[in-house]
Amino acid sequence: MYKLATFYGAWKYEFLMQARRPWLWITMGLIELIMLGFMFRTPGVLDVVLHLKNAPLLVTTVYWTNLVNYLLPVAVAILIADRLPRDKRIHVQEILTTLPGSAGARLFGKYLGNTCATMLPIILFYLLGILVIFIQTLNAQVFLLAITTFVTIILPGMLFVGAVATAIPALIWAPVFQFLFVGYWFWGNLYKPRGIPTISDTILTPAGGYSSRGFFGLTVFPVDHASAIDGLLSILVLLGLSILLILALNSYQQWQKARQ
């Protein structure tokens, strides 16, 4: 019970701290505007948006979910990467280690609080698109489909990205991680295999291509074939790796503390 209180306290603190950062909303807003600009400059897209009622509701919802997950996870990683190094730089980490409560519960609270807060602009952007679909189709089923596609396509990958962006900057300089992550995202998620080895067509990709193709039959990511089992396996692998990363980070922090 005490661990739960420690977890909730850390989650609430980190969530509010991250949600109040002006750069979170500025960065996400700019990237979302750029995405919309590219979309509407693509020939035929505007006409499709104005006639969404002529397209199958499931197809429209799944494609929108895929598009939201195309670049925004990169912004999530960049915005989370500096949180743990910042605590260490301003000596907040040393203060937290003196407080009662489980260090592991506090770390998980920090990780999930930061990740959830960083996803707020994405959720609002996603809901805006769903609202446009609803206005065009007047089919309330889109909201149920939106929840389903968000939970299966976007959420597992975002949790994985949040875990990576929390753990890896504890080992390397945050700007280096941010630079490397941008390259990784294009190589390991968006690049269609053409002779250069990549994991973009494996269940390890957090972009959601496997769950999208496996559960709904279509995706914009380079995943040509996937079953529902493949989609479920991809989700479980991403969630499992997220937990392992935070557990490994907690062990590393405890080892550092013991050395001091």
Rank of each mutant, 00 (worst) to 15 (best):
M1Q: 12
Y2S: 13
Y2L: 15
T6Q: 02
F7I: 01
G9F: 07
G9D: 10
G9T: 13
A10N: 03
K12R: 15
L16G: 05
L16N: 12
M17I: 15
P22L: 12
W23H: 15
L24C: 04
W25T: 06
I26M: 09
G29P: 02
E32L: 15
M35P: 06
L36N: 07
G37L: 14
F38L: 14
V48Y: 11
V49K: 05
L50G: 11
A55M: 14
L57R: 09
V59D: 15
T60H: 11
Y63R: 12
T65H: 03
T65L: 02
N66G: 03
N66Q: 01
V68L: 10
V68N: 05
L72W: 05
L72H: 03
A75I: 08
L79F: 08
L79D: 04
I80W: 08
A81M: 07
A81C: 07
L84R: 14
P85W: 10
K88Q: 13
R89I: 04
I90E: 06
H91C: 01
I95R: 10
L96N: 09
T97P: 01
L99A: 13
G104P: 05
A105W: 12
R106Y: 09
R106W: 09
F108G: 00
K110C: 03
K110T: 10
K110W: 10
Y111P: 00
C116A: 15
M119A: 14
F125Y: 14
Y126N: 02
L128W: 11
Q136A: 14
L138H: 15
A140R: 12
Q141N: 14
L144Y: 14
L145T: 04
I147N: 00
T148N: 08
V151S: 03
T152V: 09
T152K: 10
I153D: 07
I154K: 10
G157R: 10
F160D: 01
V161G: 01
V164N: 02
V164L: 13
P169A: 02
P169G: 01
I172W: 05
W173Y: 13
A174K: 09
F179Y: 07
F181D: 01
F181T: 04
F181G: 01
G183V: 06
W185P: 00
F186C: 03
W187R: 11
K192Q: 14
R194M: 11
I196W: 05
P197K: 03
P197A: 01
T198S: 05
D201K: 08
L204Y: 12
L204S: 04
L204T: 06
T205D: 05
A207E: 07
G209N: 06
S212E: 04
F215P: 02
T219S: 09
F221W: 10
P222G: 07
V223R: 07
H225T: 15
H225C: 09
S227Q: 11
I229A: 14
I229P: 04
G231W: 06
G231Y: 05
L233W: 11
I235V: 13
I235D: 08
V237E: 04
V237A: 10
S242A: 11
L244M: 11
A248I: 10
A248G: 10
A248Y: 11
A248F: 13
Q256C: 09
K257W: 11
A258G: 06
